[in-house]
Nucleic acid binder design. Structure first.
Length: 775
DNA sequence: GCTTTGTTCCTTTTT
DNA sequence: GGAACAAAGC
């Protein structure tokens, strides 16, 4: 047992061993918070606590994944028996068991933000409400806010204060929309993210026997990032721990960055009121960062009025001053960062994984990516545009969702005509209206279409098509009973004709979509394999997969162990650490964001976010800002961020003019490549014919054109990407050898148009990463 | 009914 | 730079 504590210092040891009764740990950045939590759990188990009796809640999958991994290293396979996961994941699991009590069935769908917004849009349309007044995003935010504060539609509409606010804002019908949305979700047997928390509260409030069951089940409750809990999370946790009172929360008010989604930092302050016998521990020593970084972080946060006084200090060396880089444009900024990393790598002999580039908004990643490709530095983007937001993935998931949960109207409408089955908008609309008027679900109507079609006034052709569709889904349902997740998924994709639709399409995009669908299938395969190893007795179902995947924001990147620079938003960086950190886009209105400067507390949250970003670094922080930046295709000039002046001047290596880099030459638009550039290629639709058609290399055949949205989106061809130029011979794992005709696209996935003689049929737009250069 | 073409309006951060 | 919508064309 001794060996466990050996890895910890004295303060940490004390915390780990204090296992009985409520404990609050105020842990500054770099104080070994995750370590303490992990070892505390390990300690419990080593002392005979059953892992099934421990619940450990985190905010992100990343955090829980990391903790699980560390725990497995310390205590072995028992780690997987702990109820460890995100709030949403764990509560989703419980709700699946208890769904019937709340009028759901256990295969409920989890709606993501896009699903929610599209339902709100439909509601607005059906009630002919102006979507300018009732902006769907805003409506959703309002509903979400109500739910995280545990205000039901009924309570919302009966609360004169809320009604007054809405009335004042000239949006008196918000409550009505909330109610309609609420009912729509219930009818579809679906919960959105906030419902997972809300319904968990309902369960605990209205079913004392259920509450007791889980209170008895969990002897130990641990919560990470406690400052980010919202009211509904806080109430659940409080109730769960009420009986055994072995609750341990870890938090840092200075790192609270989620007030926008309902987090209440007060929860930290109130903890001792709820549990008067609480023992409070403070971990203030920072083992991560240099003196300079710690001082800078402290000097930033001291600008905030509201904070619990806590001094972070460190024994570490002073370290380098914080370098500030001034740039003329976003493109130049990206190149400066890439170059700086390049030089640091050479001088300090470190790896790509030692670097992180942070930014305020995801949109900023684009320029960085371009620069990194130019400089040949491998990178990984964490949490960018989600894999699961792609059209083809959403389509495929809709098939799965519908098969598992027939009530899911969103899903049915999405795929009833994908691939085209001759079931058009008019028919679909008619069914929706009919269903809602008769209090039926969409599925109710089409599954017994023979009895309904007269009132619907459908043609016999439409009737047949709808019936065919319903029969197909019914067949999937039957087959689902006997097949495990991967097999049924594959079967659905084939039999629905979706895969074939992609296969026969000659759009370049389709082969890319195909790859994504295959990637999803691989994901299911991994899921079933892992589940079978974990518990060979139980067959992993499609429903299990859906639950897991709905709460995932990104497909688990396979490149996790590769040596790459990490790029992510400051929010995503929470909980991580890197030797070298670059914080980019330090411009007023960008960081701090202009959207977050309406009130003082919003500005203070931005400051805390900057604090989080700074304290990710171990050895060196580099800040950069640009004097101009592209916004909506237009160049706008920027002012340096106030944060730059809020840091103690002595800690800064002040801005200097950017020297001209040793390659390329400067233009008003940033840098221009030294490589030869070609005339703009026009794309097919909406544009005049390609002026100078691109001809395939000798021995290669070209069929089809690039398809894009409109002439405004014609793309530049770039040649200087990772040593590949048109003409380069490449090899694809599946299609064999080919020749690059064109490099295309910007953003996360640079694409190459490649001719594959073996494949013959068409040119392919492929994910760049999948190509190997031959010779 | 389905596909192509043209326009508008966005943009914070995440489960 | 792009998603979502609307309109026109097939």
């Amino acid at each position: 047992m001794k060996h466990l504590l050996q890895d910890l210092n004295e303060a940490q040891q004390l915390v780990v061993q204090e296992t009985n009764g409520p404990v609050m740990i105020l842990a500054g950045p770099g104080s070994g918070k995750t370590r303490v939590l992990t070892y505390r759990i390990a300690w419990l188990i080593e002392n005979g606590v059953d892992p099934f009796r421990i619940m450990a809640l985190t905010f992100t999958n990343k955090a829980s994944g990391e903790m699980k991994e560390r725990l497995t290293k310390i205590i072995g396979n028992e780690a997987r028996n702990i109820w460890m996961g995100t709030f949403h994941g764990i509560f989703g699991r419980i709700l699946r068991i208890e769904a019937h009590r709340l009028g759901y069935n256990s295969n409920f769908t989890i709606y993501d933000t896009d699903d929610s917004k599209s339902i709100i849009k439909q509601i607005l349309k059906e009630n002919s409400l102006d979507d300018k007044v009732y902006n769907p995003g805003l409506v959703f935010h309002r509903i979400s806010g109500a739910k995280t504060s545990l205000v039901s539609p009924a309570a919302y509409n009966n609360n004169t204060e809320i009604q007054g606010e809405d009335y004042k804002a000239q949006k008196p019908l918000l409550g009505k929309i909330y109610e309609l949305y609420w009912n729509r979700c219930r009818r579809s047997n679906a919960m959105d993210f906030d419902d997972l928390l809300f319904n968990m509260n309902l369960l605990m409030r209205d079913f004392p026997e259920v509450m007791e069951k889980y209170q008895n089940m969990f002897h130990y409750v641990l919560v990470d990032e406690y400052q980010d809990t919202c009211l509904s999370q806080y109430k659940i946790v409080k109730k769960l721990a009420e009986k055994h009172r072995n609750i341990c929360v870890v938090g840092d008010d200075a790192q609270g960055i989620y007030a926008f989604r309902g987090a209440r930092i007060e929860n930290i302050l109130n903890f001792s009121k709820d549990f008067p016998e609480t023992k409070v521990f403070k971990l203030e020593q920072n083992y991560r960062s240099t003196q300079v970084i710690v001082d800078a972080a402290n000097s930033i946060i001291s600008n905030n009025e509201s904070q619990i006084t806590k001094t972070i200090w460190t024994d570490n060396d002073a370290g380098d001053k914080i370098k500030v880089i001034r740039n003329s444009s976003d493109a130049e900024e990206a190149l400066s960062v890439a170059q700086d990393i390049f030089h640091t790598k050479v001088n300090q002999r470190c790896l790509n994984v030692d670097f992180a580039v942070l930014y305020r908004t995801n949109a900023q990643s684009r320029a960085l990516e371009e620069a990194f490709r130019k400089m040949n530095i491998p990178y990984r983007i964490i949490g960018s545009v989600s894999f699961y937001k792609r059209k083809e993935i959403k389509d495929v998931m809709a098939y799965f969702r519908l098969t598992v949960n027939l009530s899911d109207e969103e899903a049915i409408v999405r795929i009833i005509n994908a691939p085209a089955r001759g079931i058009g908008k008019t028919t679909v609309d008619r069914i929706i209206v009919y269903a809602h008027e008769n209090d039926l679900t969409f599925w109710d109507v089409i599954s017994s279409i023979e009895t309904n079609h007269k009132e619907l006034g459908l043609s016999s052709g439409a009737l047949k098509k709808l019936d065919d569709f319903a029969v197909m889904i019914k067949r999937f349902r039957i087959q689902m009973e006997t097949l495990h997740a991967y097999d049924i998924a594959e079967l659905i994709l084939k039999d629905s004709g979706y895969l074939n639709m992609l296969k026969v399409s000659d759009e370049l995009e389709s082969s890319l979509r195909m790859e994504n669908v295959e990637e999803l299938l691989n994901g299911i395969k991994n899921f079933t394999d892992a589940a079978e190893i974990e518990n060979p007795e139980v067959v992993p179902t499609l429903g299990d997969f859906l639950l897991e995947v709905s709460l995932l924001t990104d497909l688990d990147d396979d490149g996790v162990n590769e040596d790459r620079v990490s790029m992510m938003t400051a929010h995503s960086a929470k909980g991580l650490e890197f030797p070298y950190v670059y914080i980019t886009g330090l411009e007023e209105n960008l960081f701090p964001s202009i959207m977050s400067m309406n009130t003082k507390s919003e500005l203070e949250e931005e400051r805390r976010l900057f604090y989080v970003a700074l304290t990710r670094a171990m050895i060196r922080v580099t800040l950069s800002y640009a004097e101009s930046r592209f916004k909506w295709g237009k160049r706008e000039s920027c002012e340096p961020s106030r944060f730059l002046t809020e840091i103690d001047e002595k800690l800064l290596d002040m801005p200097r003019k950017k020297e001209i880099p040793d390659w390329g030459h400067q233009t008003s638009q940033g840098f221009e490549s030294d490589f030869e550039s070609t005339p703009k290629l026009r794309v097919k639709s909406g544009a005049p014919a390609i002026k100078k058609p691109v001809e395939p290399p000798v021995g290669f055949k070209k069929i089809g054109n690039i398809s894009a949205q409109s002439q405004n989106q014609s793309q530049n061809v770039e040649f200087d990407i990772q040593n590949v130029i048109p003409g380069t011979e490449v090899e694809h794992e599946k299609f064999g050898k080919g020749k690059v005709l064109q490099i295309d696209g910007s953003g996360a996935e640079k694409k190459a148009v490649v001719f594959f003689p073996a494949f013959g049929k068409k040119n392919l737009l492929l994910k760049f990463a999948k190509l190997k250069i031959v010779g």
